[in-house]
Design a protein around this nucleic acid. Structure first.
Length: 183
DNA sequence: TCATTGATGGTCT
DNA sequence: GACCATCAATGAG
């Protein structure tokens, strides 16, 4: 299956976050594809969103967020984990969707029920920051079989410092899926 | 089951 | 020096 087109990412961030649920994320390491079904996401809407990394302006770390849509924004957090995001909307909008959990499909041996864990399981790290998701190493496709699902909306995790923005329902996950991260 | 804490280090002020 | 879009281990109830 081909990567989702640039136009998929060049849309309203909430729409992208919701539509990424159920899609297949693939990272090929040493010729072996590691595949998972996206089951949980969070939308970060841009510099006006106090919970977004882009809220405090452009820095070396968040530079990719300010670039064109359809690229990987990977950052290092808490001294031991990476988090994987896809950049959305037009260049300069500085918005992104955090992939918080996937359901293993192929090539995965470790747990994937959280943003740090899924990056480790997929082999995503600093080297993948800035990758074009229309390339062949790291990309997202339509699933082989499309399954019906119900989307649950909740406040985002770990952003209590963001005031009212922490209360908005910008976390989305597939209802009943066992691989969604736990409270 | 819930609340608390330690691990661990890059980033920004 | 403080903070952090995390996770696992711990202990109380």
């Amino acid at each position: 299956m081909p990567p989702l087109p640039r136009a998929f990412y060049d849309r309203d961030t909430i729409t992208v976050a919701r539509e990424l649920l159920g899609k297949t994320l693939i990272h090929t390491v040493n010729g072996v594809p590691r595949q998972g079904k996206i089951v949980e996401t969070e939308a970060y809407l841009g510099p006006h969103d106090k919970a977004a990394h882009s809220a405090r302006g452009r820095t070396p770390r968040n530079e990719v967020m300010f670039g064109p849509p359809g690229h990987a924004y990977v950052y290092f957090i808490y001294g031991m984990y990476f988090c994987f995001n896809v950049v959305t909307e037009r260049e300069g909008h500085a918005s992104a969707v955090l992939i918080r959990a996937i359901e293993p499909l192929a090539g995965i041996t470790d747990r994937t029920c959280g943003p740090g864990l899924l990056c480790r399981a997929l082999g995503i790290g600093k080297q993948q920051n800035g990758l074009d998701l229309l390339g062949n190493e790291l990309f997202i496709t339509e699933p082989a079989k499309i399954e019906h699902h119900v989307i649950v909306k909740r406040p985002r995790i770990g952003v209590d410092y963001a005031g009212l923005w922490a209360r908005r329902l910008l976390r989305f996950y597939i209802k009943g899926n066992a691989f969604v991260s736990k409270r």
